[in-house]
Computed example of a mutant assay.
Amino acid sequence: MSAAAAPLLRVEGLTKHFHTTKNLFGKPTHTVRAVEGVSFEIGHSETLGLVGESGSGKSTTGRLILRLEEPTAGQVFFEGQDISRLRPHALAPIRRRLQVVFQDPFSSLNPRLRIGESVGEPLRTHGLISSAGERREKVAALFRQVGLDPRFMDRFPHQFSGGQRQRIGIARAIALGPKLIVADEPITALDVSIQAQIVNLFLDLQEEMGMAYLFIAHDLGMVRHLCHRVAVMLRGRIVEMGSTEQVFANPRHPYTRALISAAPIPDPEREAARRRIPYDLVPPPPGAVLQEVEPGHWALSAA
């Protein structure tokens, strides 16, 4: 496979177990299998949507890719390099090309720093600016890129709305020109009227900068609008994965069908006629494996 055809990100057998309680001897007595054998790829300039209910392991998967959590097992390959066991000093240059946008834009910003300093901090940390004047110029350009007035650079986070703060978080994430952004439910905390603006901003930036996204979300409507492919998670495992068109038009796993049936329809008559498909949220059986049900479309079924 040529370098151009190789995926930007490849995840193989990613696993994370949390030990929640310990006995008198300090040994764990209960294990939560947050992520269990997750594998997928993201191509250059591609958006993969990761969907599922709360507690399904979506955000933990994103944190494992970013190395904010250490995996119990499995590997993460970014630009062909295994980054899952890199030491912090070797990981530092990788972080320039692998960035994150968090769910809560307010908690991800230092309330004591002016916004211009927060957005410019990655540039200073990675030695990409030589003076305060150059920093202000680059931060002003980033503000304009995400639709903010550069005159706001000297304000503090509490002086902005939720949508504006998320734009600030996006500006900080793109400051280093990343190849991949993990967007961890970036629109969940926003008003409905603002969510579409932020999603359209992601699309505009992707077209302009050629970035790829891992877009973690609950909102299936936004996922359908933004993502090229979709992976559905249940109890730490991927139960279905394929192109957005395949998954929404022909869902093959019962849980996927239940999720799609639960999504509201912005049409009063169709919404009134919508019938939810129930699904018992039991873990997938141990012997279940992903099988290709049509080219590029995978669903979990018994081995």
Rank of each mutant, 00 (worst) to 15 (best):
L214F: 04
S39A: 07
G116T: 08
D267I: 02
S261K: 08
P266T: 05
Y213W: 10
D149I: 12
R97A: 11
H126E: 03
S107G: 13
G52I: 09
S193K: 02
G162C: 09
I94H: 02
H158K: 14
A73V: 10
F248C: 09
A4G: 02
R229A: 06
A272I: 01
A92K: 15
P111D: 10
D154K: 06
R124A: 15
P254M: 13
E121L: 10
N23Q: 08
T47W: 01
G120N: 13
E79V: 06
R96P: 02
H253P: 04
T60R: 02
K27N: 12
A5Q: 15
A5H: 10
A171W: 06
R85N: 13
L203H: 11
R33T: 14
R114C: 06
R33H: 15
G242R: 01
A132Y: 13
F78Y: 01
P186C: 08
Q291D: 10
P122L: 05
P111Q: 08
R224G: 07
A5F: 07
R252H: 14
G62I: 00
A3H: 13
R172K: 04
S54I: 10
V101R: 01
G74Q: 04
L14W: 08
G80P: 11
T15R: 07
R151T: 15
S45L: 00
P268E: 10
V35D: 05
E185K: 07
F156W: 11
T21M: 15
Q145A: 15
S84D: 05
E46I: 01
H17D: 14
L64E: 00
G147D: 03
G162Y: 04
H158L: 10
P7N: 02
E79L: 13
V192F: 02
E207K: 15
S193G: 10
A73I: 12
G169H: 04
K27W: 10
K58V: 00
V146L: 03
